[in-house]
């Protein structure tokens, strides 16, 4: 384990006019650590995620990222070119709706290969064999490599989106409700796959979810958000087994027991 965090967030706030998106959020994320951000719709968790992933600019506060060369960079002071480069190499972003993260009209192989081509890979054979490898890691058969994601089921699309993100070996992946909108059985398979990949690759991840079971299975740490504020944070099992904030207790007690 490294002595330095990967991401350092200090007093981050985002306002939409006078309305609070999220306010005064601070935390550190270490390499290989999975942080879950939970809360209901409108709690500000997606606003926070989008600020961290530089898809939104915060109103105030800073977020610094330790680049592969060990240099710390302020995310909001980087040039757009650098930021976009970071996003397609060292970062990943898994959208809730796979159609938002995939190119629906090009083949699965090209979806996976796009990042490689973006960083200058110009050997078709190598790109294709890397794509085959990644498709198999997300349990998509080689025979589907030339099919468009339009022909895939929801679960397969989501797995394809994950492969597309991981092909460049990112160190940090943002996930926005990665299992939302999937059937329960498909969800379980995806979660299990994600968990395996995160462990095997030593990925750091920030996972936004309203599903506490997802948080329990994937994350070591979690933050509970309500009305734009973090109301409770800590080890995932501590927060879930001994919830302290009134809102967290409500969330935990609201889970349906099967």
């Amino acid at each position: 384990m490294t002595d330095e965090p990967l991401l350092r967030v200090t007093a981050l706030s985002k306002y939409y006019g006078s309305r609070i998106g999220c306010e005064d959020i601070s935390f550190d994320l270490w390499p290989g650590e999975v942080l879950a951000i939970v809360g209901e719709s409108g709690s500000g968790k997606t606003t926070l995620l989008n600020c961290l992933a530089t898809r939104l600019l915060p109103t105030s506060g800073t977020a610094s990222y330790r680049m592969r060369d060990g240099q710390w960079r302020d995310l909001y002071r980087m040039s757009e070119a650098e930021r976009r480069f970071l996003m397609r190499t060292d970062w990943g972003f898994v959208h809730q709706n796979p159609a938002d993260g995939l190119r629906m009209t090009v083949s699965a192989g090209a979806n996976v290969g796009e990042r490689l081509m973006a960083v200058g890979d110009r050997h078709y054979g190598n790109i294709r064999s890397t794509a085959v490898d990644w498709l198999s890691r997300v349990e998509i058969g080689e025979e589907r490599i030339d099919d468009e994601p339009r022909a895939f089921s929801g679960g397969m699309r989501q797995r394809l989106q994950i492969a597309r993100n991981l092909v460049t070996g990112p160190r940090l992946v943002f996930m926005d409700e990665p299992t939302g909108g999937l059937d329960v059985s498909v969800q379980a398979r995806l979660l299990d796959l994600l968990r395996g990949l995160v462990t095997d690759l030593g990925l750091a991840a920030i996972v936004v979810t309203h599903d506490l079971a997802v948080a329990r299975l994937l994350s070591q740490r979690m933050m509970v958000m309500k009305n734009g504020h973090v109301v409770e944070a800590g080890l995932t099992d501590r927060v879930l087994d001994d919830p302290r904030a009134p809102y967290t207790q409500l969330l935990v007690s609201s889970i349906l027991q099967v």
Partner: peptide, 16 residues
């Protein structure tokens, strides 16, 4: 930003 990876995606699709 000289992000031209996408152009090769089209050529990749052709070959595939």
């Amino acid at each position: 930003l000289e992000e031209y990876g996408l152009m090769h995606v089209k050529l990749y699709e052709d070959i595939a």
